[in-house]
Design a protein around this nucleic acid. Structure first.
Length: 886
RNA sequence: AGGCGGUUAACUCAGUGGUUAGAGUGCUGGCCUUACAAGCCGGAAGUCGGAGGUUCGAAUCCUCUACCGCCUACCA
């Protein structure tokens, strides 16, 4: 067997992925009856490119998917992309602009056609990039939020909700983006701190008495319909009910009293502009005030502003302020830092204005979504996010779902041009059912999150009753960043429960957001963006995935540095070389297919590595089952490097290179089996290198990604039970080796200079152990011989002398080094366990503890005691085994 | 204004009551030992943000506090 010195990721990763895909290994076999494991991908924007957030999100999903596939679950990962209404439209509009075109010039149909063409051209990018990452999605089930089936789902849901009164049309104050020229939902408004001014403006009553109001937006004064004061404010009791005039245009408005007004803030008097401020809108409704639209959709003042009509709102502010000052209405200007709402897309300042839009009545849907998490039908992980989820849903407001865009699901509503009837229907109507008048379709499209809210069931074929839907809904896990908990997760919960009557997923796993090394958000403007594809090119997808997994803990930030990826690239190399060593030392006839029982007793290192593998397999399972990706990666890393490579492979060299043919055969078999287990355990996180290694293993059949995950020892694989005796014996040998090495280093003895350490111990068991297994250590410590001797007189230190064995090492370079061979692992462990057990027992014997602690805590302690007792028994058995050998 | 995170080695982070607090990178001394020099062996490096408390025992639990960050929010 000849292998390259390192894993050629650039060449092999692509080839391996193509084989997997060609073999159809990502598609679940039909007719399975076992447990399912289903994930729907958070659909990336169809015209987007893979960024770090996607890389992390999909790495974690792929780890879960591959793990469950190996476990034998009926595993499905549904991929797809999102049409991303406003984002995609903006991209294409920008492209048009470079041709000197505007969408209006093209007309709606042509423009939409252009976007589709754009999608055909660039839509494949992101899915290709996901393949480079190794994502094992079932591409045969790939969906697009705007494809035919999903459009059908969207329409069906819209009509149903409308029929139930959960979707309605109304004139309300909405968030308008003057730049994007569309309404956006509350959640799409972001807050930005701005340094602004608070203007104090003097309004005068008809009688000429002044009342000063404070505002940050003087240009909206032409939309004022009242001045409000707090009813309890003694300063203004005389004013309530009187009429004041809006400065500059002299329109009369009343002074009203409303609790909302804060006596402390500003002047205690507030101008009421229902058309352009959410609070004022509510106050206006309470007092049945008219809504005056002073600013239009383009962000310019309307005719209500008299001489100022047509001015852009920013310009208008300056002009109005200067006029107010000139005419003596301006009292003062104070600097003010406050948060203004901006569009999440273009960061333009949002203009609240009253407009006719479609809304989803969310409260009844939100209640169900809260219940489902409260009663555990869906759990959110990490659980700290549950509170955030509840808070948002409890305070949810109706969801404005109409958008004044051309790219998206067009709202299925028609208006009769004759009688004005509104028709919402599954089929396109040709005329008014009431008066036969001509009908015209609503020009608006739906919020892109409306269709993604249906994703978990629409992708499985709903509203058709498909086999996929029956088998795979509800899905198992949803993996996404916490930043879209509200945008997406909460909406899927509401829609899933409403439409399917069942939660869309059983667990939500929220992962960190990827940031640069200093914790900054990655953004083009900061120039700190790391392109995942360039990382993959440089280090390989495996190293990259491993890095992401190793940092995917429960914190909120994942600070990515290429240094770290470089570090884990070394790990990939390490595992590759470990396999290279193993595969080149198997001889001719060692094969995975050889199921004959080995004749003879396994060597100590072989027993040890099997024992360790059994435990590590269990640990990997536990960590993956609990979404502890970082700890899973950590387990793999340290097991492979610190135990498998540093000790096992070194300890078996004397055997493999020795003369005992029978022992060689036995060890070769264990070596091969353990290698197979190692790469199986690691496959979910580093699929490429492990798959390649599998193909090189003699007797391996099929693909690694469809084998069985080690552990649970039900299949009679190599992984079996723990062997505490082997572990404690190896632990002792490690202690000896470390002590000798450390002593050598202290005296700067080069490895080439052979030494003959003399190990003194008063424990006959250890003496015999050294006698038997000492030779295994020789090459590790650069010794010609290892001479265990019993000291003439034991060195009693204290009462524990019977437990702790002391020894000494001499090096033949002069000097006598007091040895650090303090104790064996076994005895240490026994001592710790016994002390813990003692404490736990004391706790249980304490009547206060029993009386005061909750019963489940007491129960826990009892279980702990039982567990420790069992462990101590295991240790005792191991000690007995040692004695037996002696 | 509320809510939620973070603060542990030079850097980036693990560690949710129990031996002497760990890892990667970096630093350092010695090794080209026939898988890997992208390696091996040895080592240095931390008053776990601060103050109090609970406990036999606290990085871990409680209270207060400082700084950094995020999210929600209708103080003009």
């Amino acid at each position: 067997m000849t292998m390259e010195k390192n894993f050629n990721h650039a060449l092999l990763e692509k080839r391996i992925y193509e084989k997997w895909e060609k073999e159809g290994l990502f598609t679940p076999a039909p007719g399975q009856t076992g447990p399912t494991f289903v994930i729907v991908i958070p659909p990336p924007n169809v015209t987007g490119n893979l960024h770090m957030g996607h890389a992390l999100d999909n790495t974690l999903q792929d780890i879960l998917i591959r793990y469950h596939r190996l476990k034998g679950d009926d595993t499905l990962w549904v991929p797809g992309t999102d049409h991303a209404g406003i984002a995609t439209q903006a991209v294409v509009e920008r492209a048009l602009k470079e041709e000197g075109l505007q969408r209006e010039e093209l007309g709606r149909e042509e423009f939409v056609r252009r976007i589709w063409r754009w999608k055909e051209e660039y839509g494949g990018n992101i899915v290709r990039q996901l393949r480079r990452l190794g994502a094992s999605c079932d591409w045969s089930r790939e969906r697009f939020t705007l494809d035919e089936g999903l459009s059908k789902a969207v329409r069906e849901v819209f009509v149903r909700l409308y029929e139930e009164g959960l979707i309605y049309q109304g004139d309300y104050l909405i968030n308008w983006c003057p730049r994007c020229q569309t309404a956006i939902a509350d959640i799409e408004v972001e807050r930005e701190d701005r340094q602004d001014s608070l203007y104090y403006i003097r309004y005068k009553s008809l009688e000429g008495e002044p009342i000063v109001v404070a505002t940050t937006r003087p240009e909206t004064m032409f939309g004022d319909v009242a001045v409000a004061v707090n009813p309890t404010d003694p300063r203004f009791t005389d004013f309530v009910g009187r009429t004041v005039k809006i400065p500059l245009i002299d329109r009369p408005i009343p002074v009203i009293a409303d609790d909302y007004v804060d006596v402390e803030y500003g002047t205690g008097a507030l101008k009421i502009t229902p058309g352009h401020d959410p609070n004022d809108f509510l106050i206006g409704q309470r007092h049945q005030l008219a809504v005056v639209k002073a600013i239009n959709e383009a962000g310019a003042l309307t005719n209500e502003a008299g001489p100022y009509a047509g001015l852009d709102r920013d310009k208008a502010r300056k002009v109005v302020v200067s006029d107010l000052e000139e005419k003596g209405f301006l009292v003062k200007i104070e600097p003010l830092k406050h948060a203004v709402g901006v569009c999440y897309r273009c960061r333009s300042v949002i203009e609240p204005l009253v407009s006719r839009q479609w809304f989803v009545k969310t409260t009844p849907l939100a209640e169900k979504a809260i219940e489902a998490v409260k009663d555990g039908r869906t759990t959110i992980f990490p659980s700290q996010w549950e509170k955030t989820y509840f808070d948002w849903l409890l305070n949810i407001r109706d969801w404005c779902v109409s958008r004044q865009l051309w790219w998206g699901h067009r709202i299925p509503a028609w208006y009769c041009q004759k009688c004005g009837k509104v028709i919402v229907s599954r089929e396109d109507p040709t005329s008014c059912p009431d008066c036969q008048g001509p009908v015209e379709r609503d020009p608006d499209v739906l919020d892109t999150w409306f269709s993604s809210g249906l994703w978990p069931f629409s992708t499985l074929g709903w509203p058709d009753k498909t086999a996929d839907l029956a088998r795979y809904y509800p899905t198992t896990v949803l993996v996404t960043g916490f930043d879209i908990l509200f945008f997406w997760v909460a909406r899927m919960m509401m829609m899933g429960l409403k439409v399917m009557g069942e939660v869309p997923f059983k667990t939500v796993v929220l992962h960190p957001l990827v940031r640069d090394e200093s914790g900054q958000k990655m953004s083009k403007s900061k120039g700190n963006v790391i392109d995942p594809l360039s990382v993959i090119d440089l280090y390989g997808a495996d190293a990259f995935r491993f890095t992401l997994a190793s940092q995917a803990g429960q914190s909120r930030d994942l600070k990515l540095s290429s240094n770290r990826v470089a570090g884990y690239a070394k790990f990939i190399n390490k595992i590759w070389n470990a396999a290279r060593f193993a595969l080149s030392n198997l001889g001719e006839d060692t094969s995975l297919q050889d199921s004959s029982e080995p004749q003879g007793a396994l060597s100590l290192p072989d027993r040890w590595i099997k024992s360790r593998l059994a435990q590590v397999a269990q640990e990997c399972r536990e960590r993956l089952d609990s979404f502890a990706f970082d700890r899973y990666a950590d387990t793999i890393y340290h097991f492979v490097w610190d135990e498998y490579c540093d000790w096992y492979l070194e300890l078996i060299k004397p055997i493999l290179f020795g003369a005992d043919e029978k022992a060689i055969r036995l060890t070769r078999k264990t070596l091969l089996n353990s290698l197979a287990d190692v790469i199986k355990l690691a496959h979910p996180v580093i699929p490429f290198v492990t798959e390649e290694l599998w193909s090189l293993i003699p007797g391996s059949q099929g693909f690694l990604m469809t084998q069985n995950y080690p552990g649970e020892s039900t299949t009679g694989e190599t992984v079996g039970d723990a062997d505490p005796a082997a572990e404690s014996q190896i632990g002792f040998l490690m202690d000896v080796a470390r002590a000798v090495r450390s002593t050598r280093a202290d005296f700067s003895v080069p490895l080439g200079a052979k030494v003959s350490p003399l190990v003194k111990t008063n424990d006959p068991v250890l003496l015999s152990l050294l006698d038997s297994y000492g030779p295994l250590l020789l090459r590790l410590i650069g010794a010609a011989s290892l001479n265990p001797v019993a000291p003439k007189a034991p060195k009693p230190r204290d009462a524990a002398a019977t437990v702790f064995s002391w020894g000494e090492v001499w090096l033949p370079l002069g000097g006598h080094i007091d040895l650090a061979l303090e104790t064996t692992r076994l005895t240490k462990e026994a001592a710790t366990l016994e002390s813990d057990l003692g404490k736990a027992k004391v706790k249980l014997a304490n009547p206060d503890y029993i009386a005061k602690a909750p019963s489940e805590v007491v129960e826990e302690t009892r279980e702990k005691v039982a567990l420790m007792t069992a462990k101590i028994e295991a240790v005792a058995r191991a000690l007995a085994a040692l004695k037996e050998m002696a």
